[in-house]
Design a protein around this nucleic acid. Structure first.
Lengths: 253, 253
DNA sequence: TTATTTTGTGTAAAAAATACACATTTATTT
DNA sequence: AAATAAATGTGTATTTTTTACACAAAATAA
């Protein structure tokens, strides 16, 4: 909050002096009024069977019965926003060290039936295979993103924002690898991009692109248990990426 | 907030049943606990004398005396976040219809001396010439972004995030025009990009780039009162842009 | 052994980005 | 009126990047 809080924009501002406001006075203001419930919601993406998926939980609010919703929770009074998102992920998936990034905050007055609830939305990307066991029977489910229709609350709109964010972000930042096993074939990588962007890509050009970037490490292993010629496996070299990554690509719109 | 609010993550969750939570129960939870003060802060960029500037106000909190801070205010109980940002801009600059975009939410527990204050940060771009009269003596000041050192609260960090956002965003979206008069020369446009990106650009290639994009309209006017050959003036055609804009540019990082 | 499927690879063409210099126009100075 | 100063306006050659496209080799399954 900026110092403008003391300018008191409305007409009834007679009592507040522009200068000399004390910290204590501001504390009173902050504590007494204008407070809202704050939540964090997570759009958790996964990739399985060559489909992009999102992890949802069945809403048990009567009003939203039978609808699915994003994973979220109220932010605790002494909890940072990022920590809150990590806590939610940890509780749901059992995993730390997931890719997590804040995307947008939704705070329309009427967005939640329980009153004013502002929600800070994070996207997370996880490798489904590593987390099969953690889901249990929590009413959690990996949904294909294509068959998402109505979610509880305004969660469909939130999801749409996050999916658009992912489509853009995955092209300029190497976050897609978080959806794959640490060892992956180029075919899997291409399938991932095709699923996220919903387009077909030329195989030779795709490979050339990634080899030219020079962040893939050939680990001298091949796929197992595939019913055809196995592909070579690679890892993504995050350290090399951090050193070499581009600053900007040029004006283009 | 997702349905996970009823899972009650802490150990003392014995009373809450996983299903069947009523809306009323959730309302109680939302209203009674876990509420925070919410503010909106605006990073208002301007462009003048070929310098990128940011609009700041002098903090009058004792602790931050003599420091500058961003423009912000507490969000009102019945006010959407975007509306709150527009209100702040309107009060400060007298103008509606400014370019405005939400960038990030900062909510670290210790970020504000008055207690837990979570702030949703917006960036706005305005043309300084059109707003000279509105600033008055409000302790407002256009700061050159190069000479920004310490701001009040965590506003320097917020500013840095927004400046990085602007540098990226201006390359993929035509928001820079909001910093210029509606009629501008190509030289002014190039100066703007050079100031934002802090690089030198080749004049001929810059012109070629924008002419190829084909969103600039030659209005058959020239600069006035320049002490040298005047340049032609152009407008940006937003409608044409909306029709033709690119979807993605390709994988590159 | 044959058939099937997928991997792995290279080149030519087109498009985009870059580097680079000079004549023209206008205002200012003498 | 002429000369000067300062910025505009323009094109081409080179390099880099993107795109389109086909066939032989490897592994499995029948």
């Amino acid at each position: 909050m900026g110092s403008e809080a003391f300018i008191m924009p409305t007409k009834k501002s007679g009592t507040a002096t522009k200068n000399g406001k004390t910290l204590k006075g501001l504390q009173t203001e902050v504590q007494s009024i204008n407070r809202v419930a704050l939540s964090v919601d997570c759009v958790i993406f996964g990739f399985d069977e060559n489909k992009l998926k999102v992890l949802l939980i069945r809403s048990d609010l009567k009003k939203y019965q039978s609808k699915w919703s994003l994973l979220g929770d109220l932010v605790k009074p002494e909890e940072d926003l990022d920590a809150s998102a990590y806590r939610i992920l940890k509780q749901r998936t059992g995993l730390n060290d997931l890719y997590l990034e804040q995307v947008h905050t939704f705070g329309e007055v009427g967005r939640h039936p329980a009153g004013r609830v502002v929600t800070v939305v994070y996207c997370s990307l996880i490798n489904i295979q590593n987390h099969r066991l953690k889901i249990l029977d929590n009413e959690l489910h990996w949904h294909e993103i294509e068959s998402l229709t109505d979610l509880a609350f305004d969660h469909k709109r939130i999801f749409d924002t996050c999916y658009a964010w992912l489509q853009k972000r995955v092209q300029e930042h190497p976050l897609g690898f978080s959806l794959l096993p640490s060892k992956f074939s180029l075919r899997e990588l291409q399938n991932l991009y095709e699923a996220i962007l919903n387009i077909k890509l030329d195989r030779r050009n795709f490979r050339k692109k990634f080899f030219t970037m020079d962040f893939l490490v050939d680990i001298n292993e091949v796929e197992q248990d595939v019913p055809h010629r196995p592909g070579k496996l690679y890892k993504f070299d995050y350290e090399k990426y951090e050193k070499k990554k581009k600053k900007w690509s040029g004006i283009d719109f």
